[in-house]
Design a protein around this nucleic acid. Structure first.
Lengths: 226, 226
DNA sequence: AATTGCCATAGGGAATTCCCCGATGCGCTA
DNA sequence: TAGCGCATCGGGGAATTCCCTATGGCAATT
């Protein structure tokens, strides 16, 4: 990745991009670099390379795609929060599930924006956050407020009962990945993944692994239409 | 959407972008417009607006994200194929090939590329297709070839290649049943069921049991919807 | 009639996954 | 502080998967 662009102009805000789709990354980079007050100081396609590059390039801002293809999305967010408490992070996502947004915000994200939104919104969000605010789409804000008012979490999404890690595993299963593969992608032991699977099965009242796979795949397919 | 850029230079290939993520769209546009032989003549975020804009701007090429909101992706592809038989279409997808690619190609796509791939690949694919070739990942090419060689001229339904017994097993897998369960239901040994599974995997070019389960479940879901 | 080939059926053995246990450490909260 | 949920890992036995091989049956080809 191109982590070698160093800022000569001290006034520009250095933005770091993390997304596993090169197309999105480069597109966003071209877009941001056109702004007079912003510049992209580096990119990464995964958690490990991101951490390394961020340590080197010391950005003022991070845009992070939390999407399912990048296994460590939430995890990386938490790590960043722990290592750089003051580094603002804007989450980019293709899902508008409040489950994700909620988790992301709880994990310390400063904003959450969907890829469906207009590109300018990204700039708006960045500037909002740089001023110390939190950025959320109107729709999402509304939804979250409703959830807040309504008390507990909406029972309509049983996935909300899953912990962050469990949800990640669930998604990967839905994408057709095997236990071993998931363990590698998440950098944990297969035993750990097995535990997650067991917990998921319990929380979703599934009998066996096959049903789990079925459930996960079906839900991953349903997302495209919803 | 910006469908108002008309080409003054007659030599450039006019590309039309369809993706429901503005960020991806604009990024890709910036990227493509840097090429001397290509230019973006318009964009759209959905099926209806796409058809309208294409009618107006008469592109030489279409890049289509198949995971548009709703089932519109494939549907739009078919419509385009019907209305403009000679208009080349490159499918952009974020999903791991599997089910979509086959369908897309059958519906007349000239290429299939994932968002995980390097951005340059998009340009490669476009130029490939403009020369009359079909662009596919190596793995996908292999699979399709195998299907073609193995199964006469009717890749229409790859399931047709399965023997009766194999199809039974396939359906039961799609219903979420396990090996043991299936063996009982068919009154044969688990070993026999395993053999069937192996044969099915081979005939459908699937790598492991997970993919088999995935494939079976997806196809069982498709039957409900269709 | 002999050969070839697909099908249904299965076995062996190694690798992997499943499933039910438990365990540690951590952070939050009552 | 005691409890609870979470993330992480492990044991051990059962079940499944994976790869290879094999036997009859039946049908078409040679």
């Amino acid at each position: 990745m191109n982590a070698s662009r160093v800022s000569p102009s001290p006034s520009k805000c250095k933005v770091f991009l993390i997304d596993d789709h090169p197309i999105v990354r480069q597109g966003l980079a071209l877009f941001i670099d056109r702004e007079p007050d912003l510049m992209v100081c580096g990119e990464a396609d995964g958690a490990t390379s991101a951490l390394q590059a961020i340590r080197d390039s010391l950005p003022d801002f991070v845009v992070l795609d939390i999407s399912l293809d990048g296994p460590d999305g939430l995890e990386l967010l938490k790590t960043l929060r722990a290592k750089y408490p003051n580094l603002p992070v804007l989450i980019l996502s293709m899902h508008d599930e409040s489950a994700y947004a909620e988790r992301a915000l709880r994990a310390g994200a400063n904003g959450y924006i969907m890829k469906q939104e207009a590109t300018e919104k990204v700039l708006t969000a960045i500037r909002h956050i740089l001023r110390g605010d939190v950025y959320l789409s109107d729709r999402l804000t509304k939804r979250m407020l409703q959830q807040f008012v309504h008390g507990a979490i909406s029972p309509r999404d049983p996935l909300a009962k899953l912990s962050d890690r469990e949800l990640e595993v669930y998604r990967l299963i839905g994408a057709g990945h095997g236990t071993r593969q998931i363990a590698d992608e998440l950098h944990v032991s297969t035993k750990t993944v097995e535990s997650y699977q067991a917990h998921i099965k319990e929380k979703l009242s599934l009998r066996n692994a096959r049903e789990l796979v079925q459930h996960a795949i079906e839900s991953s397919l349903n997302e495209k239409g919803a």
